[in-house]
C-alpha cells in the first residue's frame, strides 16, 4: 500500500492503495465516485472514461501511481450544475436507455469537443468508436454531440 494524493474534480484526495490499482477502482471503491463505470477492464468499452487534463482516458487501464499531477475530471465533476453543453444535449435528445454506458459516452464526447469543437460525422465516429452502447443509442449520441457543437 502506498499513499497517493490525486486531484479529482478540483479537489485534492489522499488514498492509501496498491500502486497498480486502476483509477476506476480508486474512484469507485475508495472515493465512492461511482459515476465512472466498469464494463470490461481492458480498455475495450469506454464505460470507465474520465479526463486527465481534459483528455479522455480509460480509467480501468490507468494505475493510480502514474496519475501524478494530472488533474482528473469524472462525470460528477464535468460541470458544477450539470449544464455542460454535452449534458444538456444528452437530455434534449433523451439519449439514455439503460444509461450504464452514458457517463463514459459523455466524458468521451466532452473530450472530443475540447480538442475539436466542430467535428465532422466521421471524426465523431472515429473518436467515439471505443465507447460501446449495448442498448444501441448511437444515433442519438451523434445527434446530441452535433447539438452540443452548435450550442457551445
Amino acid at each position: 500500500m502506498s499513499q497517493f494524493t490525486i486531484k479529482i474534480n478540483g479537489e485534492s484526495h489522499q488514498v492509501d492503495v496498491a500502486p497498480d490499482t486502476p483509477m476506476l477502482w480508486v474512484l469507485r471503491d475508495h472515493l465512492k465516485l461511482v459515476g465512472t463505470k466498469y464494463g470490461c477492464g481492458i480498455g475495450a468499452c469506454g464505460a470507465c472514461t474520465i479526463h486527465v487534463d481534459g483528455v479522455a482516458t480509460r480509467s480501468c487501464l490507468l494505475p493510480v501511481s502514474v496519475v501524478g499531477e494530472g488533474a482528473i475530471t469524472t462525470i460528477e465533476g464535468l460541470s458544477a450544475k450539470q449544464d455542460h453543453p454535452i449534458q444538456l444535449a444528452w437530455l434534449e435528445h433523451d439519449v439514455s436507455q439503460c444509461g450504464y454506458c452514458q457517463s463514459g459516452q459523455i466524458m468521451n464526447a466532452a473530450s472530443l469537443l475540447n480538442q475539436n469543437p466542430d467535428p465532422t460525422d466521421s471524426e465523431i465516429d472515429i473518436a467515439m468508436n471505443g465507447n460501446i452502447c449495448r442498448c444501441g443509442t448511437y444515433i442519438r449520441i451523434k445527434a446530441a454531440i452535433k447539438t452540443a457543437t452548435n450550442n457551445s
Binding site: 471503491d29 465512492k32 465516485l33 461511482v34 459515476g35 465512472t36 463505470k37 466498469y38 469524472t74 462525470i75 460528477e76 450539470q82 449534458q87 444528452w90 437530455l91 433523451d94 439519449v95 439514455s96 444509461g99 450504464y100 452514458q102 457517463s103 459523455i106
Partner: peptide, 26 residues
C-alpha cells in the same frame, strides 16, 4: 423524457454495481 435522464448524465448511483452498504465486502 426518461425520468432518470438527469441522474444518468450526472453519474448518480442508480445501478446495482453502485450500491453501497455499511460494512459491505466485495
Amino acid at each position: 423524457k426518461n425520468v432518470d435522464g438527469p441522474k444518468i448524465i450526472k453519474g448518480e448511483p442508480l445501478f446495482g454495481l453502485d450500491y453501497q452498504h455499511e460494512g459491505m465486502l466485495i
